[in-house]
Amino acid sequence: MCEGTATRLAFAVSVWTVIGFVLLPLSVVVWLSFFANRIISFPPTGYTLAWYARAWGVADFRNGLLLSLQLGGCATLGSLLLGAPAALALVRGRFPGREALSTLLLAPMIVPGIVGGSALFMAYIEFEVATDQQLAGTLPGLLAAHVLIARPWTVRLLTASLTGLDRAVEEAAANLGASPRRVFLLVTLPMVRPGVIAAALFSFVISFIDLEKSLFLVGPGRTTLQIAIVNYLEWNLDPTIGAVATVQILIITAALVVTDHYAKLSRVF
């Protein structure tokens, strides 16, 4: 019995240690953001809130954050516009090649970010040479890349939510004389609303943290927050980065907590 208790204790300790390791990077950057000295030393000599103001004062971070928020919002909207009908087709449709279509729609998740990013960059340049229309380094070019990577997650979350839907309710509405359009707007849509909210927030996070795809497509004066962070880290390591990271973590945590409220996060991956 005594041995069993010891084993159980050792197991619990190792599990919580690993969870601590997973949370370590997050805790470190949050802690760092309050360090008083610019030169990082452990333990810190004191604490301050000044780095948050300084981070906002760095133009790359401020513009990067604003661009990433804007891009995330637009990419989410685009992903929903493309993804919601696609999810409906995958769940409700009975047609040959449905499996192949599903694979095609999820393909952007499988192709590595750097590979897809290089290919898109080359295609943009080729397009520019052919038509004199610039895409690389422009907002539309960046937006298309973000829709490409966010949309599969939209489809995945919406498919899950549509699959769990009780169709009898829709049929009842149709039997009572509602047109297909009315059924969709007044019955189907309200029923999948939690799924739509979860899909939207999750897609936003995917766009917000993207690094590899954006790497090729940002232009001078048009940098996403992730790229701004990488560029800054090449030459500097100070508590400013902690402040930026903390703000980013707060945004992401908020989005994910709400997502988890509407859809089981553990089932998303």
Binding site: L24, P25, L26, V28, V29, L32, V205, I206, F208, I209, L211, Q226, I229, V230, L233, L237, I241, G242, V244, A245, Q248, I249, I252, L256
Partner: peptide
């Protein structure tokens, strides 16, 4: 989903 750039900074 905290972002690889931020995690690397940590």
């Amino acid at each position: 989903l905290m972002g690889n750039a931020v995690r690397s900074a940590a």
